[in-house]
């Protein structure tokens, strides 16, 4: 009897899948409808997926990361040759793939410009890995209008201007997690959408930390700043006491001095009794819920 991969017993498939990386696993699902069903059937351990979108010239780089590793999975190209032979289908999306000779681990995909491949790919992969809404999008560009609805967790990798960020977060306001990697020095922050995000991490902030502190309207935040003064904390506490219906639950301020944090030193400098008197019954001990 002729044997191929699909004719192997299911327990053998499970053994083979346990040796495959998420990238290989994903590529196997793209081989045919039957392989997709087979791969999807397998309940694998929960994966935290990260999708890295980067656009250079006419190319969009799409990388799938999982288990703290990043596997560059696909390169999307906006031109599409209709007469191509290697056609790949993901839902309604028709794409062409080809491999790079110098990057054998990358699948090179072309797609129709007027389609939204990222959204389809995101749906397909979250479906494949049984992780709906669990994908973190790592974005180098905010020009990803096609995926706005899918994005619930985002990491913005490059410096973008205030208007771009405002537009992006206005379009997808219900973010579960937002992180901005590159520092930005905006002064007109009061009603900026970024400060209304529920869980926010801002890295490499420029001196206007106080604006971020007093205008933040989310629940949890980590602000990593270049310069940090005791005054900022005191001002934050004063404003916090006066606020009504403030959703803030946790806030970490981190100052980067040769990789070390100065926040502990500063908080040690504030006497607990003085702090208690200042904040009244809104005092929470360190690491409390």
């Amino acid at each position: 009897m002729f044997k191929n991969f699909l004719t192997l017993p299911l327990l053998v498939h499970l053994k083979i899948f346990s040796c495959l990386s998420p990238t290989e696993y994903s590529i196997l699902s793209l081989c045919s409808r039957r392989t997709k069903i087979l791969v999807k059937w397998r309940k694998r351990e929960r994966l935290e997926l990260k999708i890295h979108v980067e656009t250079r010239n006419k190319f969009s780089f799409f990388a799938l990361g999982a288990d703290n590793t990043e596997h560059k999975l696909m390169v999307l190209e906006r031109d599409f040759e209709p007469n191509c032979t290697s056609v790949l289908r993901l839902g309604d999306l028709v794409m062409k793939y080809q491999s790079y000779t110098d990057q054998s681990e990358t699948v090179h995909i072309k797609y129709h410009y007027n389609l939204n491949p990222l959204e389809n790919l995101a749906e397909s992969f979250s479906d494949l890995f049984h992780t709906p809404g669990n994908i973190t999008w790592k974005l180098e560009t905010l020009d990803v209008s096609g995926v706005l609805k899918s994005i619930k967790k985002s990491i913005i990798l490059r410096k973008n201007n205030c208007e771009e960020l405002e537009k992006f977060y206005s379009s997808c306001p219900d973010q579960e997690f937002t992180m901005i990697e590159e520092g930005w020095n905006l002064w007109t922050l009061e009603h900026h959408k970024i400060l209304q995000q529920k869980n926010l991490v801002l890295k490499k902030l420029r001196p206007n930390l106080l604006s971020f502190l007093v205008n933040f309207r989310g629940e949890n935040a980590v602000f990593e700043c270049v310069h940090f003064e005791d005054l900022h904390v005191k001002e934050l506490l004063k404003q916090w006491i006066l606020k009504r219906d403030d959703p803030l639950r946790s806030l970490i301020i981190k100052q980067q001095i040769r990789g070390a944090s100065r926040v502990d030193y500063i908080l040690e400098g504030v006497k607990h009794l003085e702090l208690k008197k200042m904040v009244g019954n809104r005092f929470y001990s360190y690491e409390s819920e």
Binding site: N4, L6, C19, L20, L28, C31, S99, E105
Partner: peptide, 24 residues
């Protein structure tokens, strides 16, 4: 099984189809 899994390394779907003898 490990050998079969290793065969998938760096393959595109088309190459994988050939390697795993998968019907289209």
């Amino acid at each position: 099984c490990k050998k079969v899994a290793n065969m998938a390394q760096g393959k595109t779907p088309a190459q994988l189809r050939r390697v795993y003898l998968l019907p289209s």
